Measured scan of single mutants.
Amino acid sequence: DELEKRVKKIARKLNLSLDQVEEWLKRNNNDELVEAVKRLKKK
């Protein structure tokens, strides 16, 4: 979905793993995208 695409884009842009992106999003209080990261990690 759109949020998952955004997460992947962030990960690529910042050259981070999904775990690192998740931490980064949590620090930025971006719950919506944190949920998207969790969905991606399950895939």
Rank of each mutant, 00 (worst) to 15 (best):
D1P: 07
D1E: 12
D1L: 13
D1A: 12
D1K: 11
D1F: 10
D1N: 10
E2I: 12
E2R: 10
E2V: 12
L3A: 13
L3G: 06
L3M: 12
L3V: 05
E4K: 05
E4P: 03
E4H: 03
K5R: 14
K5D: 13
K5L: 13
K5A: 14
K5N: 12
K5G: 08
K5Y: 12
K5P: 02
R6K: 11
R6L: 15
R6W: 15
V7N: 01
V7S: 01
V7R: 02
V7A: 05
V7Y: 03
V7K: 03
K8D: 06
K8Y: 13
K8G: 07
K8R: 14
K8S: 09
K9C: 15
K9G: 09
K9D: 15
K9A: 15
K9W: 14
I10G: 00
I10R: 03
I10D: 00
I10N: 00
I10T: 01
I10Q: 01
I10H: 01
I10E: 01
I10V: 03
A11T: 04
A11V: 06
A11K: 03
A11W: 10
R12Y: 09
R12I: 09
R12W: 10
K13D: 14
K13P: 00
K13V: 13
K13A: 13
L14P: 00
L14S: 02
L14V: 01
L14T: 02
N15A: 08
N15F: 07
N15R: 13
N15Y: 07
L16S: 01
L16H: 02
L16W: 13
S17Q: 04
S17N: 10
S17Y: 07
S17F: 08
S17H: 04
S17K: 05
S17V: 04
L18S: 02
L18Q: 02
L18I: 06
L18W: 10
L18G: 00
L18M: 05
D19T: 09
D19L: 07
D19I: 05
D19V: 06
D19M: 06
D19Y: 06
D19P: 04
Q20R: 06
Q20W: 05
Q20G: 07
Q20V: 04
V21S: 00
V21D: 00
V21M: 14
V21Q: 00
E22V: 09
E22K: 05
E22H: 08
W24L: 11
W24V: 04
W24R: 02
L25S: 03
L25F: 14
K26L: 11
K26Q: 10
K26Y: 07
K26T: 10
K26I: 12
K26V: 10
K26N: 06
R27Y: 11
R27I: 11
R27M: 12
N28G: 13
N28E: 08
N28L: 13
N28D: 05
N28C: 15
N29W: 09
N29T: 08
N29Q: 10
N29Y: 10
N29D: 08
N29F: 11
N30Y: 15
N30C: 15
N30T: 05
N30F: 15
N30S: 10
D31A: 13
D31Y: 15
D31S: 11
D31M: 15
D31R: 10
D31I: 14
D31T: 14
E32D: 12
E32N: 07
E32F: 08
E32Y: 09
E32T: 08
L33M: 08
L33W: 05
L33V: 02
V34S: 06
V34L: 15
V34T: 06
V34P: 02
V34G: 03
V34M: 12
E35M: 10
E35Y: 02
E35Q: 09
E35T: 05
E35F: 03
E35L: 09
E35A: 12
A36Q: 02
A36L: 07
A36K: 02
A36G: 02
A36Y: 04
A36I: 09
V37P: 01
V37D: 01
V37W: 05
V37T: 05
V37H: 02
V37L: 10
V37Y: 03
K38F: 00
K38L: 05
R39N: 06
R39L: 05
R39D: 02
L40K: 01
L40M: 09
L40A: 02
L40N: 01
L40W: 06
K41L: 12
K41S: 03
K41C: 10
K41T: 03
K41M: 09
K41G: 02
K42A: 13
K42G: 07
K42I: 08
K42W: 04
K43A: 08
K43L: 10
K43I: 07
K43P: 03
